[in-house]
Amino acid sequence: MSRIQSVFATLKAQGKKALIPYITAGDPHPDQTVPLLHALVEAGADMIELGVPFSDPMADGPVIQRASERALVHKMGLRKVLAMVKAFRATNQTTPIVLMGYANPIEAMGSTQFVALAKEAGVDGVLTVDYPPEECEVFNQELAGADIDSIFLLSPTTEPSRTELIVKQATGFLYYVSLKGVTGAANLDIVEVKKRVAEIRQQTSLPIGVGFGVKDAATAREVAAIADAVVVGSRMVLAIESANADNLIANVQTLTKELRTAIDSV
């Protein structure tokens, strides 16, 4: 059983839902990423999405784009991100790490080399935003060969026939994008999300995470009632952005604990 599967299995047995915070590697400074990862786990994260900074993050809103820009000031590339995962793994063998990013940094490294290095570093899943399943068959096989999960997005506009194609290639969990827009956009429509998640469940037994519009504890609670996992990205990055060096960890932990409590209250 992979680390991701085992987290979902354990939570299910406890009747709980997963909290998956997102942070961008290297934001606000590369030295703070590994301490932040540990702090998130300590405050209640079940899994972490670690963003690979990219110069042109087309699917992201302004908040996560700014995080990428802050990280890139420090020349934060994919190799360094993998080194951070490795450093995190030195003392944490249980919390899954999912890398989230864009295709070009992976292609620049070469997908075969990336998969080998990701495996060695202890990466559990990879979500490549601009790799729809039709364009990444070889990469997907390489990931499968290394027992790394391929996480795919489903959107409000994804037709059932396409969902069928995607769930065949997806492993670990599915990430349902809760609104039409970029990360951190307007408020999500919980009734619509509920309907769509129920439809997706008829096509797959994979756990379903929901993200892209979870702005506070109240939304997190609503989403937790429907989905298997709640992904919180832009709101988490805002907590990092608004902090200074002294209260960075405390800020992020306060938010994570609030979200944890909300999710567990379902």
């Binding site: 087309m58 601009d130 729809p132 364009e135 795919f152 959107s155 506009t157 396409r162 995607i166």
Partner: peptide
Amino acid sequence: GGVFVAETLVEA
């Protein structure tokens, strides 16, 4: 070439 976009754009 190809279609390298996020799932949110695929249907459009």
